[in-house]
Amino acid sequence: MDPFVVLVLCLSCLLLLSIWRQSSGRGKLPPGPTPLPVIGNILQIDIKDVSKSLTNLSKIYGPVFTLYFGLERMVVLHGYEVVKEALIDLGEEFSGRGHFPLAERANRGFGIVFSNGKRWKEIRRFSLMTLRNFGMGKRSIEDRVQEEARCLVEELRKTKASPCDPTFILGCAPCNVICSIIFQKRFDYKDQQFLNLMEKLNENIRIVSTPWIQICNNFPTIIDYFPGTHNKLLKNLAFMESDILEKVKEHQESMDINNPRDFIDCFLIKMEKEKQNQQSEFTIENLVITAADLLGAGTETTSTTLRYALLLLLKHPEVTAKVQEEIERVIGRNRSPCMQDRGHMPYTDAVVHEVQRYIDLIPTSLPHAVTCDVKFRNYLIPKGTTILTSLTSVLHDNKEFPNPEMFDPRHFLDEGGNFKKSNYFMPFSAGKRICVGEGLARMELFLFLTFILQNFNLKSLIDPKDLDTTPVVNGFASVPPFYQLCFIPV
């Protein structure tokens, strides 16, 4: 058959498939802009700032609406009420993970971030239990974070109060905490193996944040037939998995079943207990991918939040002064901060919360999916439909947070200066898919920041009023603009 005829037939089939998918069930789905064949609503979305586009569309179609990214149908949730109703009140029905062709290629359905069903539930339950087990290797997770915080302070001392970009050092600290939990080992910041790991993690975040990856996920045929950065992403992930597998083999040879040292040991012990169960989800494949998931999810998000926190503290020296006064009063100079201190430091706690609220790190979270046909607000959402959640619409709700575009710790303080919780605080998402490392991340943010401010004054290279804190939105995360500062020993 003539190649031209084959091409026309293929394009015609794709067009018909697109029209059929977009028209099927439209009477039951939430409203939304009319999609174009094949490309859907992509032309109506700013790929570099999806969150802003969703906010604009919500003003037209309401808090629940339908979009098509290519052939992929998505239902968008915008605003606290619908997000709570879906992710919390109907948590089980909305607990699936959205379709990610690239991740599915890399992870093969294993791990904790992109798995679904029984596998996801069992691996998540085990990971939560293990991360909360403060007795691994007779050292609590808090001990590990405190140790890394001391190392971080010593690295900052080496800058000798000269101007520096904190990106690298602030990236090393949370990565080392995860390494300590998974591998029972922290690395020197100049260790070549550690630097290679950091390089792969950072490069992957840069790649994932590009519009090209959005295109690959919406048109998965590209993955096999086109060159691009997605190939580098898959190569980096394969490198990390190979490295983790080597460490798993080392653990198998040296493990003491009665004295687990780290996450890998705990997983291997669980595998041993379930070795007679042919349906067990505790396999080497799941261990390797879960460890890679924890490394990827637990490094860049925390380091970016820390980097943004220091920029905001530079911009608002009056806030920094209040935090340091609270540190001096509650902790002093002669001991290290600990998590028990947080309950006695409402202002510092409010500042950490406000940093996370203000920066809105992951504006749309990772997409969910419905696990069955769901009736939601008089609409029928078919099983498997991807759910896109606007966390921006919750964290920047102007009824809950007056002047949401302003950095103001009073958003989390009552009139008496006591810490005030808010149900709208969802930087880790909400419901059954809430970030498994939430507790660890909150511990790291509090301890790293208090250790830094206990030991250093922060000095800006320019007038604080002239510092730009506008986030650089890159399609996946909101990151701070480049800046330098000086760490002046107190």
Score class of each variant (00 low, 15 high):
11 L>R: 01
20 W>F: 12
26 R>E: 14
34 T>V: 11
37 P>L: 02
40 G>T: 00
46 D>H: 11
47 I>W: 15
54 L>V: 10
58 S>M: 05
61 Y>M: 00
61 Y>P: 00
64 V>F: 05
68 Y>I: 05
68 Y>T: 12
72 E>F: 04
74 M>F: 09
79 G>N: 06
82 V>I: 09
84 K>M: 09
86 A>Q: 02
101 P>S: 11
110 F>V: 06
116 N>K: 09
118 K>Q: 12
122 E>D: 11
128 L>M: 14
140 S>M: 07
150 R>E: 13
154 E>F: 08
157 R>I: 08
163 P>V: 09
163 P>E: 11
168 F>E: 12
169 I>E: 06
173 A>Q: 00
173 A>V: 07
180 S>Y: 07
194 F>T: 05
194 F>M: 09
195 L>N: 10
200 K>L: 15
204 N>S: 04
208 V>A: 15
211 P>F: 11
217 N>L: 09
220 P>S: 13
222 I>H: 04
225 Y>W: 10
227 P>K: 12
235 K>D: 14
239 F>R: 15
240 M>T: 07
246 E>Q: 11
256 D>M: 08
256 D>G: 05
266 C>T: 10
269 I>Y: 07
282 F>A: 04
289 I>A: 11
320 T>S: 10
321 A>W: 10
328 E>F: 14
337 P>A: 08
337 P>I: 07
342 R>I: 14
347 Y>M: 05
348 T>D: 01
348 T>R: 01
351 V>N: 01
352 V>Y: 04
353 H>C: 09
354 E>T: 02
356 Q>R: 02
359 I>D: 00
362 I>H: 05
365 S>Y: 05
367 P>M: 04
369 A>R: 14
371 T>E: 09
375 K>I: 13
375 K>V: 11
380 L>Q: 09
385 T>K: 00
387 I>K: 00
393 S>R: 02
395 L>W: 02
398 N>C: 15
398 N>F: 12
398 N>G: 14
400 E>K: 05
403 N>V: 11
403 N>D: 15
409 P>A: 06
419 F>R: 05
427 P>D: 02
430 A>M: 12
435 C>T: 01
452 I>G: 03
473 V>R: 15
477 A>S: 11
484 Q>G: 08
